[in-house]
Design a protein around this nucleic acid. Structure first.
Lengths: 200, 200
DNA sequence: GGGTATATTGAATGGGTGTTCAATAAACGC
DNA sequence: GCGTTTATTGAACACCCATTCAATATACCC
């Protein structure tokens, strides 16, 4: 009983199912069959809409990154001044939708997947660059020429907190994570734009 | 032509082959056959010495962590005073043997593997706790009650740098990584032991 | 030197995987 | 109403994986 225009619905629900499957399994071993079942469609249909598993995986990757970007954009919209804008990026990174074991697991999967899939690697590096340039733009007004190093540190700090969140053990409350990141930025600002004793 | 006492030799070489296989493939998909071939033995023999794949994987995990612990121990031996001791831990974490894409890939594999294998999870959490308590012990003398938060931040920062190193894209020089971590600690020390505007 | 333990292999087993394909059924265009 | 397109399925295919097992050959023990 084919209703027309199912393609977009199916694609969306398959992508969601992929993320959800990675979520609850908490690992990279996601099978096409599991995804299809979870999306409520047959295995064949999943392959009808997505040529490869890689195709589906990268689509899910794009979806998560789009979510993140949207969230950053919204947070940025209501933020005035460079320091507040950096804080907005931090807050968006730690928002409930992003900073939970499930989504973080998905990120780790993509990181790992990027090793094999050139497409995934390209997508991921776009994200990395965008985050870095976002941070740099604001930080330059706060710490001058040290912006590059501070941005690298902040990005690494966020990634590290993500890993620890994904690991499940030794998790910390969102508020603690926020304080940690915020204090990092504040300290760097307080240290001034001088290059001595700086990062990178 | 069985020479006796091969067990220890084979075990060692299989563990090395495992790490090396993970290295060059840069991912979690390591097959028993690939490991066996790389170690120069038959697939059957690999299963003769290691009951499970999990067994072999966790052994490799233990090996890498032992390496790391040894390196930290050695660095710690020649360090005087809490600040120097923290620096020693940082240096050990960034030493060539540890901080390269291959070894980092292995770490990521183990992180992922820990999701499924309770044994792996236990081993990993032991490592996490030990690093944290090591750092805390030194940091308490430097930043007082903020030690916990600073240690968490430093550990996350190290993990984040590892992830980025493992990712391959956007890598940074060891010296830059060191400067980044060192400045983090220095800034936290300079900020004093007060709890206001601190981390955690 | 016969028996036992060790070292080692190659082949089989059973299961799970991604992917392909032919077949069916309903909606649409004309 | 008929052909084309879309939606959907279930079965089939070929492959690779971890694991098991029977078989062989060498060293050690007494």
């Amino acid at each position: 009983m084919p209703k027309l225009g199912m393609e977009s619905v199916r694609r969306r629900s398959l992508v969601e199912a992929t993320i959800s499957a990675i979520h609850t399994r908490g690992s990279m071993d996601v099978t096409m069959r599991e995804i299809a079942t979870r999306a409520g469609v047959s295995l064949g249909l999943a392959h009808h809409y997505f040529a490869n598993k890689d195709d589906l995986l990268t689509s899910a990757m794009r979806a998560i990154m789009t979510d993140y970007r949207t969230q950053v954009g919204e947070a940025l919209a209501g933020a005035d001044g460079p320091h507040e804008r950096v804080r907005a990026i931090i807050r968006a990174s730690l928002a409930q939708d992003q900073f939970n074991p499930e989504v973080v697991s998905a990120w780790l999967v993509f990181y790992a997947h990027a090793h094999r899939s050139p497409r995934a690697r390209r997508i991921l590096s776009i994200y990395t660059r965008r985050l870095h340039s976002n941070l740099c733009h604001e930080l330059r007004q706060l710490v001058g020429e040290r912006a590059d190093g501070v941005a690298a540190g902040l990005a690494a700090l966020i990634d590290g907190l993500y890993v620890r969140e994904g690991l499940g053990t030794a998790r910390m409350a969102d508020s603690d994570a926020y304080r940690l990141l915020d204090s990092y930025v504040s300290l760097q600002i307080a240290a001034g734009p001088a290059k001595t004793a700086s990062a990178a």
